[in-house]
Design a protein around this nucleic acid. Sequence first.
RNA 1: GGAGACGGCCAGGGGGCCGCGGGGGAAACCCUGAGGAAGGUCCGGACUCCGCCGGGCAGGCUGCUCGGGGCAAUCCGAGAGGGGGCGACCCCUGGAAAGUGCCACAGAGAAGAGACCGCCAACGGCCCAUCUCGGGCGCGGGCAAGGGUGAAACGGUGGGGUAAGAGCCCACCGCCGGGGCCGCGAGGCUCCCGGGCAUGGCAAACCCCAGCCGGAGCAAGGCCAAAUAGGGAGGCGGUUGAGGAUGGCCCGUCCGAUGCCUCCGGGUAGGCCGCCUAGAUGAAUGGCCCUCCACGACAGAAUCCGGCCUACGGCCCUCUCCCUCA
RNA 2: GGGGACGUGGUCUAGGCUGGACUAGGACACCGGAUUGUCACUCCGGAGACCGCGGGUUCAAAUCCCGUCGUCCCCG
Length: 128
Amino acid sequence: MSPSFGREHRLRQRRDVARVFQHGQRLETPLFSFRILPKEEPTARLLVVAGRRLGGAVARNRVKRAVREGFRLNKDVFDHMDAVVIPRPGAARLRPGELSERLIEEFREVRDGQRNAAHQRGLRAEES
RNA sequence: GGAGACGGCCAGGGGGCCGCGGGGGAAACCCUGAGGAAGGUCCGGACUCCGCCGGGCAGGCUGCUCGGGGCAAUCCGAGAGGGGGCGACCCCUGGAAAGUGCCACAGAGAAGAGACCGCCAACGGCCCAUCUCGGGCGCGGGCAAGGGUGAAACGGUGGGGUAAGAGCCCACCGCCGGGGCCGCGAGGCUCCCGGGCAUGGCAAACCCCAGCCGGAGCAAGGCCAAAUAGGGAGGCGGUUGAGGAUGGCCCGUCCGAUGCCUCCGGGUAGGCCGCCUAGAUGAAUGGCCCUCCACGACAGAAUCCGGCCUACGGCCCUCUCCCUCA
RNA sequence: GGGGACGUGGUCUAGGCUGGACUAGGACACCGGAUUGUCACUCCGGAGACCGCGGGUUCAAAUCCCGUCGUCCCCG
């Protein structure tokens, strides 16, 4: 997998974004809020929402770039997904490299937690 | 060494790896890619539409002088007057004898006003004394120096003068008007004459004067154009004229029930142009490492340009004041 | 990106145009007291604001002027 990040990896259309917000799964971590929509197509697509709560234009740009950098270097984590990442205000206080690492760490953590919970729900369903 | 003042400059550099926007190319690849404030949106202009606009009112902006640049906003230089600072230096700026309005509280009196305390006893009055000189009261009155009020009290200081006083008179200072001289001018000199002085403050109160300004804004505006709904759009002629185009109002102007002619279009999602030698439209400049003493501050273009204001790191030139040493 | 409005006790607001005893007023909320067996209602009394912030004009600023910060609304 090449570590590139072109247009094909960006969530651009209004209707695509609306679909992720309406039907996507919502995952919360300390620094981010995720909206994840699984799909057939393998190409991962990303959208970063950096609101005014993060600070001025410079701070918001810095956060967006850090999130995109983390996504770019670990795109395999998001295969078969459309993802919207909404950083929380605390994210603006971290240095960019650190923020990129935390993105992947926190997403893996919450994804695995969801997977285990789903697995356990499946077991309980079998028992009943 | 420490406090400042003025003016100017820079906005991390170099290397490696992985990436992003735009342009070119068949491809490899090459070129290019944020700021001095890009910011706040406070002014002005270009540009576009409002059938663009013609007149007036209203409204807005600017405001010492001269010169220069600019379409304008406004900037630069040299000066004038007033104020602040020990100083380098900085700040302010049309008109208050065109009119209207306001000047609370305090105070006797707040604009050509006024007498609370006070001062006086010349004049009138009353009382005592009386040969005469006189003495007293402060009633009518005279005065505005001193006290007191206030942000501000209708020239200041000194002398003469007086019953006490007062520009009442005089000297100096200040003020006003005129002349003269200097300066393109704002103004200056105080050489001469006149006036004893009249003319308080506020126009970031209304206002007056001079100059400038039509309104809205690129989400302006134009083009292509699914689904759905469904008949309109343009031009010409034209009687009354509600109503409308108009922007805050008035006038003017134009449109306007209808007739004739022509055309098939209008428009949402979406896309394109506008949009640029940065030129995006989920919107591009970044991440990591090494090094240079050093993380550097404020901060990220969205139609473009000129100015104003605000935020902020560092360096340099010149200058001022203080301390210490020689 | 562009256009506009508003900041006054804990909350909602009046006053601002025409500056001055405005010690900034009112309602709700709060505190104390009275009433009641108790609570509510009602009555009496009380506290609470550097008028978003910083400059300027003026003798004097919540009010006028400039700058700045914040909140909200409208235009695709």
